[in-house]
Nucleic acid binder design. Sequence first.
DNA 1: ACGGATGTTATTAA
DNA 2: ATTAATAACATCCG
Length: 267
Amino acid sequence: MPELPEVETFRRYFERTSLNKRISSVSSIDGLLLKDKQDPKSLAKELENRLLAGSGRHGKYLFLITSDSKYLIIHFGMTGYLAYLKDGQDIPRYTRLLLGFGDSSLAFVNTRRLGKIFLYSDRKSFLKKRNLGPDALKIQKCDLRDRISKRKKPIKSALMDQSIIAGIGNLYADEILFQLSVHPRSLCVELKENIYEKMSDKIKYILTTAIERHAEIRQYPGTWLLPHRKKGYPCPRCGGKINIIKIAGRTTYFCPQCQKYQKRLVY
DNA sequence: ACGGATGTTATTAA
DNA sequence: ATTAATAACATCCG
């Protein structure tokens, strides 16, 4: 469940449960998820006896900041969550990293092992190395327009491209375009320039509303697409049939009645 | 049993 | 330099 709102929800969960705890042990490390030539032993050594002093997030990446200013960075891939465990609670199945605090612990659970774990001492260099664009919640209107409007790819592909804007994935891209009444295949360069101001507002509205509702899709407004993003469900706006197509290899839900293909001649 | 799934990345090609 | 298409990764679920 890991696009920006889910990851932000995990970050807040971390702040509530694990902030200022001291890491006394590191275990259940899945070496497959360790990136940039980290190995389980050295990771454990780097983290042990450190305090969890803060947190951050950029796009879909979660940052846990230690007392010596190291960043333990977690990416959830397609699945996963954090679980704070009181002493005696069972360690969840598919736990890939367990930070022990003595009387409790924090588990990073990642069923499909497509998640990633990094350890960096500098946030900037990490963003650069991963080639991440600005965070979707912080991006400025004109920046969004500048980064997208000249592209010759479908708007949905651009929204999901983490180097253009970080944090939006398949589900929220569909929601954003549904609420903007834009066909997901519309080429960026063919959209009217003034759509990008509206898009910036929509992105912020949708992501903040999702975060307020703890990224629980059932709690989203009934006017949104996401609660209806299932095969055979009608469009919440016009009652028409939702179409399912593929864009950039991903299943795309949209309403052909509400989301007309936007076209503008360009020279 | 086959195909698909909230993601990223390498490869190959246009 | 951009972009698309495809596969691969690992595992569960319907």
